[in-house]
């Protein structure tokens, strides 16, 4: 990939990240950290690509580890975040139940 384009993508993504989090209320900081933790679980895709290209035993073993760890990051991150968010209810909703 062309270096400058990559640099532009990095720059815009960094601003997006900062702006998105700036509006988040403190009560959601932990779910947010967990949610962003889930999102970098996308690394599993990178793991799949390198495992798909791997030929030698070492490459396959390391590639397998990459997919395994990445998938754990994504799935665990998702479940933890969802469990936390599941608990947030407003008092209106509480009364209805």
């Amino acid at each position: 990939m062309e270096g400058w384009i990559a640099l532009y993508i990095f720059m815009l993504a960094a601003f997006t990240g900062i702006e998105v989090i700036r509006r988040v209320p403190a009560i959601l900081h932990t779910p947010l950290m967990s949610g962003s933790n889930f999102i970098h679980g996308i690394v599993v895709v990178g793991g799949m690509v390198v495992l798909g290209m791997a030929d030698t035993t070492t490459e396959i073993v390391v590639g397998f580890i990459a997919v395994f760890l990445g998938a754990g990051n994504a799935v665990g991150g998702y479940v933890v975040t969802e469990r936390m968010l599941d608990m947030f209810k407003s008092s209106d909703k509480n009364k209805k139940e």
Binding site: M1, A6, I9, F10, A13, A14, F15, T16, G17, I18, V20, I21, R22, H29, L32, M33, S36, N37, I39, H40, I42, V43, V45, G46, V49, V50
Partner: peptide, 22 residues
Amino acid sequence: YVLEIPALMIAGIVVGAAGTLL
């Protein structure tokens, strides 16, 4: 960047920036 998958670049750096601020 290395694997040329922009989705990873965006997701990773968004989290990196947000995480740094947090």
